[in-house]
């Protein structure tokens, strides 16, 4: 059982000309194995700053991140071991894979770097991981990213993240660049992997609908502050904070839209 604690984190950026910007203001949450937390908010709300702090790409101005009670190491092998525990899936599968390298290379690298399996078993492990994300190893292994579709590429990114056998997965808008019709497939894959491997997942998104269906809990961020935190259904169906209500009202919701006669958008003039 892995526990990730994000404990009273504040992050202040000094921006030339604009003075100090409080990107995060006293944010706390706890993520456990097997749990999914949805992190929602609009652009600039601080979602990505949280991801950057979790991966130690940024250091918090105050507060502490702990994995199983131990603070994030600042550098060296200890930091690498920490990052092996916590992996990311990025938004853009077109940019997050290296166009010069084969799919095999993308998955092999973390296996080698983190010494996950003995060298002789590398190929078998690459195959296992590709099968895990429902790709045919023989069909994709020697290909390059541009030969695959967006959905396939995102599956590669997931396989790569899983290669180091992490306990926590941070998924920053993992499906927003994909077609609506395949988003659900990728989310279902993530949900299944999470169940089987007991992963803790931090799902960062501005899409309230997928956040609700994919998460156990939802945290709503506005200008670096947590304005609401509760179970997914509570937060989306009965939002308490005005900002959450605003977000909800702005999200497309055909169900309620066609149920109500008042249409403020489109329609005949």
């Amino acid at each position: 059982m892995t526990v990730l604690e994000f404990d009273h984190i504040t992050k202040i950026y000094n921006v030339r000309g604009a003075g100090q910007i409080r990107a995060l203001d006293d944010v706390s949450f706890t993520l456990r194995s097997g749990q999914t937390i949805g992190l929602v908010g609009q652009s600039g709300s601080g979602k990505s700053t949280i991801a950057k702090i979790l991966t130690q790409l940024e250091t918090p101005t105050s507060g502490e991140v702990r994995l199983d009670g131990a603070p994030i190491p600042r550098h060296g092998t200890a930091l690498r071991r920490y990052r092996q525990q916590l992996r990311m899936v990025f938004q853009d599968p077109f940019a997050s894979l290296n166009p010069y390298h084969s799919i095999r290379y993308h998955i092999e690298r973390p296996l080698r770097l983190d010494d996950v399996v003995p060298k002789a078993q590398t190929e078998a492990e690459v195959r296992r991981l590709l099968e895990r994300v429902r790709l045919d190893p023989d069909a994709v292994m020697e290909r390059r990213p541009h030969e695959l579709s967006g959905g396939q590429r995102q599956r590669i990114a997931i396989a790569r993240a899983l290669a180091s056998r992490p306990a926590i997965l941070v998924a920053d808008e993992p499906v927003s660049m994909l077609d609506v019709s395949i988003r659900l497939g990728v989310l279902n894959l993530l949900a299944e992997l999470q169940r089987d491997e007991g992963l803790g997942v931090l799902y960062i998104t501005h899409d309230l609908a997928t956040a609700r269906h994919f998460s156990d809990e939802i945290i709503v961020l506005n200008q670096g502050r947590v304005v609401e935190h509760g179970t997914a259904d509570e937060v989306i169906l009965t939002p308490q904070d005005p900002y959450t209500r605003e977000l909800r009202a702005a999200s497309p919701d055909p169900e309620s839209f066609f149920a109500s006669a008042a249409r403020d958008l489109g329609g005949a003039p």
Binding site: T36, V180, S181, R183, L184, L187, N188, A191, E192, R195, L208, A209, T210, R212, H213, F214, D233, I236, L237, R248, S251, P252, D253, P254, E255, S256, F258
Partner: peptide
């Protein structure tokens, strides 16, 4: 309310509804 084509129906069922029933993502 009344899609005729099967593909339209597939597309309509492929996005999670904000306020609809849970369970489209098998968890």
């Amino acid at each position: 309310t009344d899609p005729q084509n099967d593909y339209t129906k597939t597309l309509l069922s492929s996005f999670p509804r904000l306020t609809g029933e849970r369970g489209v993502v098998a968890r």
